[in-house]
Design a protein around this nucleic acid. Structure first.
Lengths: 161, 161
DNA sequence: CGGACAGGTGGACAACCTGACCACCTGCCT
DNA sequence: AGGCAGGTGGTCAGGTTGTCCACCTGTCCG
């Protein structure tokens, strides 16, 4: 089931930590710092990418720096038969950054951003324009306690089971 | 208030779209594709970074590929006076990928990952080990309808107001 | 035991890219 | 008119990349 997943060894972890800290580092420089051959770093990177562990190197964008200072989480209760259309609808709204189908009453769960609380209202209005959306409940993010991170997970050594 | 934010022009947008599509592209190659001088690309990138729009170039890691196939969202109701200690506690749990203070009953909102539903229970047990956590409610992510994205926002042209 | 195999090493090469300059042009604000 | 930010092409030396290669090591297996 949760079968084929890549298991990291120590070098992988050091590699990922290094690149997380200094992403624009070249392969050669990285190999020097890790004290391994350049080819090794290259091979590891290729393998991690092939395994899907590394999904990209994209520039990370801060919505906040673009003026979208408000983040909100919205639960949507929807007409299940219209799910397809609704997700397509959501996809078309740029302020919807993320969306999951979840267990519980809220059938869908979305992350929104907006320029202000007033703007948030506008965004939600666009969002609920689809009549397949029966009910929504919104929660506003006040402050980030832990920003999205994966390094602790990467560095985490699962105890032998 | 939501004052100083960087406004993107057309070139910025094209630049970001290009690098989002092919992140490992060099500055020179990018300048060719965008048909501008190399220095321009360099300057834009520097400015976007200085403005905080680009926050990083880190390798993006897929928890899923590492075997953490279960994602859950947890709302925590906490003893407010212990907030500090609690967030410190959460920070120490690798499976907590993200955490916000939010409006509403759930005082904190967290994103967790786990290797399986059984493992999720273990993670939650660790999480609620802190007695300052009064109540939790968990919702499991069943499927990703829209994966975390910022490009639509970047490409979005706000209508003149 | 001997082989096959994956993965590491160090070295070599030409082709290419980077960072740091420069002089110069343009549009815009004052 | 002057100042200034930002764009353009160009130069340069030095570093980096992709791609080979031969070779070594540990492990799994018939």
């Amino acid at each position: 089931m949760t079968s084929s997943h890549h298991t990291l060894d120590d070098l992988d972890r050091r590699l990922l930590a290094l690149f997380a800290a200094r992403p624009r580092l070249g392969v050669l420089e990285a190999s020097r710092q890790l004290k391994v051959a350049r080819g090794t770093v290259q091979a590891r990177l290729d393998r991690l990418t092939a395994a899907g562990v590394i999904t990209g190197w994209g520039p990370e964008i801060s919505p906040e720096a673009l003026g979208y200072g408000v983040t909100a989480f919205v639960s949507l209760e929807i007409d299940q038969s219209l799910r397809q259309r609704i997700t397509a609808h959501l996809e078309r709204i740029p302020q919807v950054l993320e969306c999951w189908t979840v267990t519980g009453n809220g059938d869908l769960w979305c992350r929104l951003v907006a320029r202000s609380n007033a703007d948030l209202q506008d965004v939600i209005n666009v969002l609920v324009a689809d009549p397949g959306i029966l009910r929504t409940s919104t929660v506003i993010g006040l402050s980030t306690e832990i920003a999205m991170r994966t390094q602790p997970l990467v560095q985490h050594r699962e105890p032998r089971r």
